[in-house]
């Protein structure tokens, strides 16, 4: 038993750089494969709605907007970022992105809609 066992470490730290990262200014970046915001590629979607069925939080809605055209509505407030939809998607239309700073003051901005590309006008 000795008092002040951490003295050495503590004094050494005085002359070291702090371990803190100044977050909003410096960012450490997310590792590869981080499960952040989900992105949706409408051109790959076949409308099987497996993602809707497996989503534990009911955060995804796939709407049919035309012949073989689907739009996805994500509720980021509900999403728990488990990326089960990415696993469930048969056509890899859903992908996790490393984006994680998704806090919003306005609840409406938490609804993210991925519109399908504008259909080529039939007249052309």
């Amino acid at each position: 038993m000795k008092p002040g066992r951490m003295l050495n470490l503590v004094l050494q730290s005085l002359f070291k750089r702090p371990a803190t990262l100044n977050y909003p200014v410096d960012k450490s970046g997310m590792p590869k494969g981080f499960r952040g915001k989900i992105t949706f590629d409408p051109s790959k979607c076949i409308g099987c709605r497996m993602c809707m069925r497996d989503c534990p939080a009911n955060a995804i809605t796939i709407n049919k907007v035309g012949e073989k055209r689907f739009e996805a509505v994500f509720d980021l407030g509900r999403c728990i970022y488990c990326a089960q939809c990415v696993d469930s998607c048969l056509k890899r239309a859903l992908v996790s992105s490393p984006e994680f700073e998704l806090a919003q003051l306005d609840k409406k901005k938490l609804k993210v809609v991925f519109h399908p590309p504008a259909q080529e006008a039939s007249g052309l």
């Binding site: 503590v10 730290s13 005085l14 070291k16 702090p18 803190t20």
Partner: peptide, 11 residues
């Protein structure tokens, strides 16, 4: 500040 730096923090 010293307390923080001795704990390897920014302070």
């Amino acid at each position: 500040k010293l307390y923080a730096r001795m704990q390897n923090r920014q302070g």
